[in-house]
Write a protein that binds this DNA or RNA. Structure first.
Lengths: 160, 160
DNA sequence: CTTATAGTTGACTGATTTGCTCAGGATTAG
DNA sequence: CTAATCCTGAGCAAATCAGTCAACTATAAG
């Protein structure tokens, strides 16, 4: 599992679809404008999301993209795996120059940790995430006034 | 925060140091041999880990690297942040063509999620991780097996 | 003191990934 | 029809990844 800006783009875009689920399809042009990503790049990302069965495209005027499944059935891990190719594992493969087998355990330790991170992200689905109080607060704050927020809040931990 | 093979290398290497904490410093050459990473690449990674105060170098024969702090004070998030540069945030900057401000909330949603992932990784420190039953099992299973030693360890043993 | 070990640093390089442009299709609402 | 929108593919510049090479410094061992 890899976590980069690519995955972030995909996740934020999917959140966008989830939030506007009842207000019709969302066009890539809108997402592009709002998130500052190029349209063609978004098209590539959505091609993957579509191939993984996470979104459905609606063609023609008034079209756009919508979620292919209820938000409950889409996890953050699903989204990230859809756009980020899996990474090779480059094991040491138990080479005999590994000293007494005592050191190569780190691979297993990583596997252990890696699985945990995956499980954590797999357990967060869009519905659950959007229904959290802290998240709802953000959504409602945006909904009420037309004021543009999101000044440069210190974004120390951009998972990207 | 980014999660890639680079971060994985760093984390597994740090686990290595933590496991062999009482058996003296671990050389990059050993880690290189066992994990199949090039020595020079490891040197670059450890230069960053060192600058962040996570490891200390011990020069001269019998030297190597050791943890600069007790394993309890080193989190997985620390390690990953040390080697992975932070990424630009590419905000939408509150452009007025964001439709009623209603769509740009996805940035904040991402921040929310991002913070959670960070918190999750920040709460896993090396000591706690290595003491987990499932992890200890891996370590002990490796420890008992084929014990053919290398000249290195023989030499280090006679020193002590 | 001399030497071998091992960290430290920096310049450089090829491969891959990222993010993007351009150029065209295909599909459908009005 | 026409315009909006998805869809597809080729191609490309920049960044990052992963590694090589080459020198240097500090230190323990003999």
């Amino acid at each position: 599992m890899r976590l980069s800006t690519k995955g972030r783009y995909a996740v934020t875009a999917m959140m966008d679809l989830a939030v506007h689920q009842d207000t019709g399809p969302v066009t890539l042009a809108d997402i592009s404008r709002c998130q500052g990503i190029s349209l063609s790049y978004l098209e590539q990302l959505f091609a993957k999301l579509r191939r993984q069965g996470l979104v459905k495209g609606v063609r023609g005027p008034g079209g756009g993209y919508r979620l292919a499944k209820p938000p409950r059935d889409i996890s953050v891990a699903d989204i990230i795996l859809a756009v980020d190719e899996k990474v090779d594992t480059t094991l040491c493969e138990g080479q005999e120059n590994c000293q007494g087998g005592k050191r190569c355990l780190t691979h297993e330790l990583w596997n252990n940790l890696s699985q945990q991170i995956y499980d954590y992200l797999a357990q967060i689905n869009l519905e659950e995430f959007l229904s959290r109080p802290s998240v709802r607060e953000v959504i409602e704050r945006q909904g009420e006034g037309g004021q543009h927020r999101h000044e440069h809040e210190v974004r120390r931990f951009t998972l990207a």
